[in-house]
Design a protein around this nucleic acid. Structure first.
Lengths: 307, 307
DNA sequence: TAAATTAGTTGACAAAAGCAACTAATTTTA
DNA sequence: TAAAATTAGTTGCTTTTGTCAACTAATTTA
């Protein structure tokens, strides 16, 4: 049995119990969860037919028909003969129905608030964003481009996390030793020593408030700048994040009137090389070296910017 | 209505639908979810009474009695008169029952695997860790001491992450600027330059494969060592992690025959100071400084080790 | 040792859900 | 374009699921 699956099953059991949806009466009301779900669908859809509800909630139409009949008798819903189809009815909530739902919503919210009252605001943020991630991965089965955010102000923790990403990603992908991370630490220390917010910039791509990609422009002179620390978490490749980061970086170089941008990399970074080339960079130097426990070519790429 | 709550409600609705537990038949078997949950509890508990089951699953005892009667007839369970209480029975699964449950487990696993098959391995990791986070935050169930693991081999990414922790934690707790993180980067660079696995060591406490606390011993000479980077994520304080880390560090110093251990800190770190004192450290120097956007006392503590 | 409580069973019943036959309207198809 | 097939919704009937209260027999409490 695979661990991922068993961990998900364990979470499912936990969440089933947590949701507390197996009791007959929803939030101690006189309505069952099914009935509430029906009311909820009606309130969401504004104008919905019984057929639609059976599809969404997977209910038997006879069963639903009777429930709606009772709702009508209890004055929770209003049925209007559909204009397009004389067999069907458009259903919507009555004022009473809306009121009932709003009372139940409040109850449900209170219950949830009781469960999260001990969390501080950042823990709440983490909770919501984690739920968002779970939902995203289970539905579209991929990370949505719109959930990636970008920023370029350095806040405490950023540089350390970027170093961490370099260490883990290069460690996993190319088996680089911890010496590589030490090298990255050195480059960052040197950078921070002469950091000029005016001429240098680091861009970070974030998902769930966590950095998943980055790139930086470090000025060398008024004419030349170096592009550094271009990195993307493998799980977030293929979403256009790398392209966006490089575009922003080159755009910044143009804005700052640098005439040449160069970068140092290795021939191992195939994906990154592709992107550099697509951004217009050209190979200008290549030399075999042995470092960080591996043998590879150290390469320099340059991009001339014309104005 | 507060957004956190409404987002959680939205997730709850999503997950209710996702769990697909509202249909009468669990995984197209001839058993209902309730029946399966009962069987599951029996299999978990190994030896369980009907009373226990009603408590755990919140079932009516009459209802449960009848279900168990049927299980017995279908040969899914075995009832043995309890030794301690002649009114009660110890219930356990029969071979047939175990078989049924294992078939259903496989079905459930296949279903889950179908839902995550499009995810790559790092997305699966993200999914599982997000679920873990959700679960953790929703169970006040504080972090269990036994879930904290300790290690002291430096692997790629560790140092970067420790720098990151310093940046974020000191940023949040004491409003230190990014300059502090730069200082930490410098100290780590210097450390890695002359790192000797024989005489230096970093201990890390982890939760969920993430570093939540650390401390290090850095040798200065054969006689003296410095204790550095003692840090604990605020969410993990009060679990004895700090004490354990300091104990390990001092134990290491004793093993390596250092005669004196010192550390540099500030008067701001109240919690850490307490722990240093408890470990036997004594204040030997104090001087007011202005750094990292704050004014505070820089302090030196020493611990003499006698043999 | 009598009274109260507890584990489990059973009868009676209510609520929830499913199935199939039906009407009336709509769509497909030949 | 008219017959055939399909669809939206209703209704009768049935099964499944769950609840409540009364009961027995063993155990605990006072």
């Amino acid at each position: 049995m695979n661990t991922t699956t068993s961990k998900i099953r364990s979470f499912n059991r936990f969440y089933t119990a947590h949701l507390d949806i197996l009791s007959q009466h929803y939030l101690d009301s006189e309505y069952s969860l099914t009935e509430i779900r029906i009311l909820y669908e009606i309130s969401e859809g504004k104008l919905i037919t019984a057929q639609k509800i059976t599809e969404i909630l997977n209910l038997d139409k006879g069963y639903l028909s009777r429930i709606l009949k009772r709702f009508l008798k209890e004055n929770l819903i209003v049925k209007v003969a559909s204009a397009e189809d004389k067999r069907a009815f458009d259903i919507k909530l009555s004022d009473t129905g809306n009121e009932l739902l709003s009372v139940l919503n409040t109850k449900s919210e209170n219950k949830i608030e009781g469960k999260i009252e001990k969390l501080n605001s950042s823990e709440k943020e983490i909770l919501v964003s984690s739920m968002h991630t779970v939902r995203n991965l289970l539905t579209e089965n991929k990370i949505a481009r719109k959930d990636i955010t970008y920023r370029h102000e350095i806040t405490p923790g950023d540089v350390g996390y970027i170093i961490h990403l370099h260490g883990t990603i290069y460690g996993k992908e190319y088996n680089f030793s911890t010496d590589f991370e030490k090298y990255v630490i050195k480059t960052f220390y040197d950078f921070l020593e002469k950091y000029s917010p005016e001429n240098d910039r680091i861009w970070m791509a974030e998902y769930n408030n966590k950095i998943v990609g980055c790139v930086a422009i470090v000025h060398q002179s008024n004419e030349e700048a170096q592009l550094r620390w271009f990195l993307l978490d493998p799980a977030f490749r293929g979403l256009g994040i790398g392209k966006r980061l490089l575009t922003d970086a080159v755009h910044f170089c143009r804005e700052k009137k640098f005439k040449n941008v160069f970068l140092l990399t290795t021939n191992l970074q195939e994906k990154a090389l592709q992107m550099y080339k697509m951004a217009g960079f050209e190979l200008t130097q290549s030399e075999e070296v042995q470092e960080w426990g591996k043998t590879f070519n150290e390469e320099r790429y340059d991009l001339k910017i014309s104005y």
